[in-house]
Protein backbone atom coordinates (compact mmCIF):
# COMPACT_ATOMS: atom_id res chain seq x y z
CA UNK A 1 0.00 0.00 0.00
CA UNK A 2 2.72 2.46 1.01
CA UNK A 3 4.99 1.46 -1.85
CA UNK A 4 2.21 1.92 -4.36
CA UNK A 5 1.26 5.29 -2.92
CA UNK A 6 4.87 6.47 -3.02
CA UNK A 7 5.33 5.31 -6.59
CA UNK A 8 2.15 7.13 -7.60
CA UNK A 9 3.63 10.35 -6.20
CA UNK A 10 6.95 9.81 -7.95
CA UNK A 11 8.76 8.94 -4.73
CA UNK A 12 11.20 6.06 -4.75
CA UNK A 13 9.72 3.26 -2.57
CA UNK A 14 13.24 2.19 -1.65
CA UNK A 15 13.34 5.29 0.54
CA UNK A 16 11.11 3.53 3.06
CA UNK A 17 12.86 2.97 6.35
CA UNK A 18 11.23 0.08 8.21
CA UNK A 19 11.75 0.12 11.95
CA UNK A 20 10.63 -2.64 14.26
CA UNK A 21 9.44 -1.54 17.68
CA UNK A 22 9.56 -4.63 19.86
CA UNK A 23 9.75 -3.45 23.45
CA UNK A 24 7.58 -1.22 25.60
CA UNK A 25 10.66 0.84 26.34
CA UNK A 26 11.40 1.54 22.71
CA UNK A 27 7.71 2.29 22.08
CA UNK A 28 7.80 4.91 24.78
CA UNK A 29 11.08 6.34 23.56
CA UNK A 30 9.85 6.58 19.99
CA UNK A 31 6.37 7.81 21.00
CA UNK A 32 5.01 4.80 19.17
CA UNK A 33 1.25 4.38 19.64
CA UNK A 34 0.74 1.28 17.56
CA UNK A 35 1.44 -0.63 14.41
CA UNK A 36 1.55 0.35 11.65
CA UNK A 37 2.74 3.91 12.21
CA UNK A 38 3.72 5.74 9.05
CA UNK A 39 5.80 8.87 9.36
CA UNK A 40 6.58 10.97 6.33
CA UNK A 41 9.70 13.05 6.90
CA UNK A 42 9.24 12.32 10.59
CA UNK A 43 5.64 13.51 10.68
CA UNK A 44 2.91 11.03 11.60
CA UNK A 45 0.41 10.41 8.82
CA UNK A 46 -2.39 10.79 11.36
CA UNK A 47 -0.90 12.36 14.48
CA UNK A 48 -2.23 10.62 17.59
CA UNK A 49 -4.48 12.54 19.91
CA UNK A 50 -2.76 14.09 22.91
CA UNK A 51 -2.34 11.61 25.73
CA UNK A 52 -2.76 8.52 23.56
CA UNK A 53 -0.72 5.83 25.31
CA UNK A 54 2.38 4.41 23.70
CA UNK A 55 2.79 0.65 23.44
CA UNK A 56 2.96 -2.48 21.33
CA UNK A 57 -0.62 -2.34 20.12
CA UNK A 58 -2.42 -2.46 16.83
CA UNK A 59 -3.22 1.01 15.65
CA UNK A 60 -6.74 2.15 14.90
CA UNK A 61 -7.25 4.36 11.88
CA UNK A 62 -10.43 6.04 10.77
CA UNK A 63 -11.26 5.86 7.10
CA UNK A 64 -12.77 8.93 5.49
CA UNK A 65 -16.13 7.18 5.46
CA UNK A 66 -15.93 6.69 9.22
CA UNK A 67 -15.04 3.01 9.24
CA UNK A 68 -12.43 1.69 11.65
CA UNK A 69 -9.44 0.12 9.97
CA UNK A 70 -6.01 -1.24 10.86
CA UNK A 71 -4.63 0.71 7.90
CA UNK A 72 -4.89 4.40 7.03
CA UNK A 73 -7.24 5.65 4.37
CA UNK A 74 -5.40 5.49 1.03
CA UNK A 75 -6.47 9.06 0.31
CA UNK A 76 -4.94 10.27 3.58
CA UNK A 77 -1.74 8.49 2.68
CA UNK A 78 -1.75 10.02 -0.78
CA UNK A 79 -2.36 13.53 0.59
CA UNK A 80 0.41 13.20 3.17
CA UNK A 81 2.88 12.06 0.55
CA UNK A 82 1.80 14.76 -1.86
CA UNK A 83 2.24 17.43 0.79
CA UNK A 84 5.69 16.10 1.64
CA UNK A 85 6.73 16.18 -2.00
CA UNK A 86 5.56 19.77 -2.42
CA UNK A 87 7.40 21.00 0.68
Amino acid sequence: MLREAMAAQGVDPSAIEVREIDTEESAQREEFVGSPTIRVNGRDLQPPVEGEPTGLACRIYRRRDGRVSPLPDPDDLRDALRAAVVR
Binding site: A57, C58, R59, I60, Y61, R67, V68, S69, P70
Partner: peptide
Protein backbone atom coordinates in the same frame (compact mmCIF):
# COMPACT_ATOMS: atom_id res chain seq x y z
CA UNK B 1 -11.84 -3.51 22.66
CA UNK B 2 -8.77 -2.05 21.01
CA UNK B 3 -7.99 -4.23 17.99
CA UNK B 4 -9.02 -2.55 14.70
CA UNK B 5 -9.67 -5.92 13.05
CA UNK B 6 -11.98 -6.99 15.86
CA UNK B 7 -13.73 -3.63 15.72
CA UNK B 8 -14.11 -3.83 11.95
Amino acid sequence: NHCPYAIA
